[in-house]
Design a protein around this nucleic acid. Structure first.
Length: 536
RNA sequence: GCCCUCGUAGCUCAGCGGAUAGAGCACCGGCCUCCGGAGCCGGGUGCGCAGGUUCGAGUCCUGCCGGGGGCGCCA
């Protein structure tokens, strides 16, 4: 059992002795920001004071008293601080235990909390229409979705990632018309796609003067380009789900029929409407236009019916940009109308990524292509930059600034730490230094503040992965990776592993510490989809 | 007009209702006899405004101000 769990149980036992029944799982324990507040800290006395009918500090005193009577493992001091916090100061032994755990469980096992219990979750992200190249924003939310998938998979969910390919309807016609106009050397029609990329495509189009044919040609080429771009920054999908395929398979018609049977549909003005206002939408929505074409919503509902009712995913996470948040209410209403508990649908809205002054729009042709960003900054930097902050935060990207500080980019700081670790390994083998077995190493020699700081940081990774998964917040992993790299650089600077006056026993202990840092860094970089280089 | 979302240091951003609100960048000053200086160390009078809930509010609620987004038989 880990130290954290033992502490929680000791606290629960102490509370029980004071007549307060609280499950150990509900005892709040955290690693304080400040070292002076101990290795672990709990606010139970504050949280339970009201229930106990006592003042927080008084309750803390009583609890501390009983904990001192039978101190949990490693605990050297229990202090009461501030309004009633209980601070635990531990001997370094708990950190050596953490290190053993890290290196024995390794990259595959450490920091793999089982929170999902195998729940099947489908995550949809990017899903950009194949009408133009990907934008920087697509890359932003794509990196988010991809990393979220990796993190949730590590935390015990069974994850399925999808890209919804919107290859049907009016926009395919608009795309075809734009392509044909380009080929004829005429201006692109109103509502068409103005981007230069279409001129290039038009030059290669030798098919007939047929709008749908031309549209299909263009969208296929564009989709191939999209796949190439995504692969460059490590954004993966298990499935590319075609909207045309569900229209052709009859699922859209089936879905509308199902809604009609449930009484949530009516006909008006030659169109078929969903009574979405019954489910919290601001207005009713059209499912089938008077010309007979299904709307985007109808297709999307068929897709979500497939997710929930046919493939039976227990949870669905849709990652949208803020420019699509207007469709959330109708989607949610439609899902509820299908008889699905809307709590099973989670929509993560990413705030828009804007560029210096201009607005991004594929139709107008004014946008910063993701390809351009990757060319300028590199794949890893692009990827990491998009994962440094919460997607709730609108981002303003200044490409020139990002370029000029590219050598100062956080990605180098983190990767450099990994490269230094690899370098230590190379030097060790050059000098014929081999690492002894873990049981033969004396980890208790690791007492330098830098060593202990590094170990404490390592101890946080399981909790960070857990939080990142449950809060759907990959940026927390980024923050941790930067912090760990920071601790490592400090350690590297002050603690030579194979220095001239370093005893060989200490070298051994440090080699294991370095291995622990390597494992932590490798895990976090993998979750972020960033390379962990052996050299820079 | 209505709805959503964001507002924290010069800039980019952290901060599960808890302790003295933190990082990076930029700027200034230090540190190379040994494993990579893309590093390390030091330098900080900031939570948009006003109320409210609470023992305690950057965090929750209301209003206002400001930025972004949305409100189609487009997707």
């Amino acid at each position: 059992m880990g130290v954290q769990q033992e502490l929680k149980e000791a606290i629960a036992t102490g509370l029980e002795g004071l007549g307060i029944d609280l499950p150990a799982g509900e005892v709040h324990l955290e690693r304080p920001q400040r070292l002076e507040h101990g290795d672990w800290s709990s606010n139970v006395a504050l949280a339970q004071a009201k229930r106990a009918g006592r003042k927080p500090r008084e309750l803390a005193e009583a609890l501390a008293g009983s904990l001192k009577g039978a101190p949990p493992r490693f605990v050297e001091q229990v202090e009461i601080a501030g309004p009633g916090f209980l601070n635990f100061r531990l001997g370094p032994g708990w950190l050596y235990e953490v290190l053993r755990e890290v290196v024995t469980e390794g990259e595959g096992g450490f920091a793999s909390p089982d929170l999902g219990s195998g729940e099947r979750v489908q995550i949809e992200y990017v899903s950009a229409n194949p009408t133009g190249p990907l934008t920087a924003g697509n890359g932003w939310f794509g990196s988010y979705g991809d990393s979220l998938g990796r993190i949730m998979a590590r935390a015990g969910w069974q994850v399925h990632r999808e890209y919804y390919v919107n290859d049907t309807g009016g926009q395919m016609r608009a795309l075809g018309e734009s392509l044909l106009a380009r080929r004829r050397g005429e201006p692109v029609p109103e509502g068409g796609y103005q981007g230069e990329y279409l001129a290039d495509l038009a030059a290669g189009y030798e098919g007939p003067e047929d709008v749908l044919e031309a549209g299909r040609y263009a969208s296929e080429r564009i989709l191939a380009n999209i796949k190439t771009t995504l692969a460059r920054i490590g954004i993966h999908f298990d499935e590319w789900y075609s909207q045309a395929s569900i229209e052709e398979s009859g699922q859209v018609a089936d879905t509308i029929e199902l809604l009609r049977k449930k009484g949530h549909v009516y006909d008006q003005d030659g169109a078929v409407w969903l009574r979405s206002t019954d489910f919290g939408d601001g207005r009713d929505r059209v499912l089938v236009k008077s010309n007979g074409d299904p709307t985007y919503l109808a297709g999307d509902l068929a897709y979500h019916r497939d997710k929930f009712l046919i493939r039976n995913f227990e949870r669905v996470i849709d990652v949208f940009g803020a420019d699509h948040h207007g469709q959330v209410a109708s989607l949610r209403a439609g899902v509820a109308a299908l008889g699905v508990d809307p709590d099973r649908l989670e929509v993560r809205i990413g705030q828009l990524v804007s560029l210096v002054g201009q607005r991004m729009s594929k139709r107008s042709g004014h946008f910063v292509p993701l390809e351009f960003l990757i060319d300028e900054l590199g794949a890893d930097a692009t990827r990491l930059m998009s994962l440094v902050s919460s997607i709730d935060q609108a981002t303003t990207l200044d490409i020139d600034a990002a370029k000029s500080q590219s050598m100062e980019n956080p990605v180098y700081y983190v990767q450099y730490a990994h490269a230094r670790i690899a370098s230590i390994g190379r030097v060790a083998s050059e000098r014929g230094v081999t690492r002894v077995g873990l049981d033969d190493a004396n980890l208790a020699l690791l007492v330098h503040p830098r060593e202990l700081d590094l170990l404490r940081r390592l101890a946080d990774l399981p909790r960070v992965v857990a939080e990142a998964a449950t809060e759907r917040a990959p940026y927390k992993v980024t923050s941790w990776a930067r912090a760990l790299a920071g601790e490592f650089h400090g350690f590297y600077h002050d603690c030579y592993v194979m220095g001239t006056d370093v005893p060989s026993e200490l070298t051994q202990a440090r080699l294991w510490l370095v291995e622990g840092a390597r494992v932590g860094l490798a895990i976090s970089l993998d979750l972020l989809g960033v390379q962990a280089p052996e050299e820079m």
